[in-house]
Amino acid sequence: MSPKEVIKRWVVLFNNGNADEIAELYHSDAVNHQVANEPVIGKKAIKEMFSQEFSTANMICIPEHIFEDGDWAILEWKDPLGLRGCGFFRVMDGKIKFQRGYWDKLSFLKMHNLPIPMV
């Protein structure tokens, strides 16, 4: 699959809340770094991250644009509550090797009535 095709599949699995299947889109040593959080390294840890996130909030990704350039895909997205963000995915051999996402964590926590950590 091309990077753009991988991201289209990723969106479907994300919206289904399927941590097992979405994890299969990643290399065994992939890195998922949502910049509001610490990087998550390895397919197993990424699966656990998605399992936790899917059990915490009902998240929906509505793609606005998906761009492809070489082995990179860029996903610009929104959700039904008004949150917006973007993700950068490096896809190698049909699997995600690296992902970086940008979104407003404070807005996400407030929208889903989740506790706001005090630091």
Rank of each mutant, 00 (worst) to 15 (best):
M1T: 09
S2T: 15
V6A: 03
I7P: 03
K8L: 14
W10P: 04
V11C: 13
V11Y: 03
L13A: 09
L13S: 07
F14W: 13
N15P: 12
G17S: 07
N18L: 04
N18W: 00
N18D: 15
A19T: 05
I22F: 10
I22M: 06
I22A: 05
A23W: 12
E24D: 12
E24V: 00
L25G: 04
L25K: 06
L25F: 03
H27W: 10
H27T: 12
S28H: 08
D29G: 06
D29L: 05
D29K: 02
A30L: 11
N32R: 14
H33F: 09
H33N: 14
H33C: 09
V35D: 01
N37V: 10
N37S: 10
N37K: 07
N37Q: 10
N37E: 11
E38W: 03
P39Q: 10
P39W: 07
G42C: 10
G42F: 05
G42W: 03
G42K: 03
K43M: 08
K44A: 15
K44I: 11
A45S: 14
I46Q: 03
I46H: 05
K47M: 11
K47G: 10
K47P: 09
K47Q: 15
E48W: 00
E48S: 14
E48M: 09
M49E: 11
M49H: 13
S51R: 13
S51W: 07
F54N: 09
F54E: 07
F54S: 06
S55H: 14
T56N: 14
A57K: 08
A57M: 12
N58I: 15
I60Q: 14
I60R: 15
I60P: 06
C61W: 12
C61N: 09
C61T: 13
I62V: 15
H65S: 13
I66C: 13
D69Y: 14
G70K: 14
D71P: 08
W72Q: 09
A73Q: 02
I74R: 01
L75F: 04
E76D: 08
W77G: 02
L81W: 06
R84M: 07
C86Q: 00
G87W: 00
F88E: 00
F88W: 11
F88Q: 01
F88T: 00
F89D: 03
R90S: 04
M92G: 08
D93P: 00
D93K: 04
G94V: 02
I96N: 02
I96W: 01
K97I: 02
K97M: 09
K97W: 07
F98V: 07
R100P: 01
G101D: 15
G101F: 01
G101Y: 02
G101W: 02
W103Y: 13
W103H: 04
D104G: 05
D104S: 10
L106A: 11
L106H: 08
S107I: 06
F108M: 11
F108L: 07
K110W: 00
M111Q: 13
M111D: 11
H112P: 07
H112F: 09
N113D: 10
L114Q: 11
P115G: 09
P117S: 10
P117T: 05
P117F: 06
P117K: 05
